[in-house]
């Protein structure tokens, strides 16, 4: 079917607390509508086949992949994107702050999906085990961090553990040892 025969649909949805009406082709992905029509480019597209989690947003409170939904399905939906995750005063929320403290991001491309996924997960599972944390983010691919900082961030956000930075880990935990060879300096 050629694109000129496709008629636009009108969708009204709430995004980050504000009402929006978007007119788009019925085939338009929610991820593309958020990015292109609402200019909310924090929602990233890493695969467009539901495997990487970079495009994760909350729809009526549930974490979903916006690349697997059409914008046309969203009439009346309440959507929260990563742009709507910070505290009302603009400061980082608990998960975001833990991600910074624990070096849970490097290039930052997977990060919006991680922030949205973890925020929803910890809301529903306030006291997760390590294994539950790893399973919760198993649908979010990160190529930079090896997930270590992300898992630490989830631990901190959930348990308020003092591992507030790797600095603290480096000097205190047994898992990191340091030896300075002054003689060679």
């Amino acid at each position: 079917m050629s694109s000129d025969t496709i008629h636009n649909v009108t969708v009204s949805m709430t995004v980050n607390g504000r009402g929006h009406t978007v007119s788009c082709q019925p085939r338009k992905l929610l991820s593309d509508a958020l990015r292109e029509d609402l200019h909310l480019t924090g929602t990233h597209v890493g695969c467009e086949h539901g495997a990487c989690g970079a495009c994760t947003v909350l729809v009526d409170g549930a974490a979903v992949r916006s690349c697997l939904l059409f914008a046309a399905q969203m009439n009346g939906a309440d959507i929260t994107t990563v742009e709507g995750m910070a505290n009302p005063d603009g400061s980082l929320n608990t998960v975001q702050q833990a991600m910074q403290d624990c070096h849970g991001l490097q290039c930052g491309f997977c990060t919006p999906g991680i922030v949205v996924t973890l925020t929803a997960f910890l809301r529903d599972h306030p006291d997760p085990t390590d294994h539950e944390i790893r399973v919760a983010i198993s649908g979010n691919l990160c190529r930079c961090t090896g997930y270590h900082g992300i898992v630490n961030a989830a631990r901190q956000a959930a348990r308020g553990e003092p591992a507030s930075s790797v600095e603290a880990q480096s000097s205190e935990s047994q898992s990191s040892e340091s030896q300075k060879l002054e003689s060679q300096s």
Binding site: H131, I133, R134, V135, I137, S138, G139, N140, L141, R143, G146, Y147, H148, I150, V151, S170, S175, S176, E177, S178, Q179, K180, L181, Q184, S185
Partner: peptide, 17 residues
């Protein structure tokens, strides 16, 4: 790609010459 459940907690030691 590796995902979180397959990855361990990494342990680091440092020598600084």
């Amino acid at each position: 790609l590796p995902s979180a459940p397959e990855m361990p907690d990494f342990e680091y030691g440092h020598v600084e010459s």
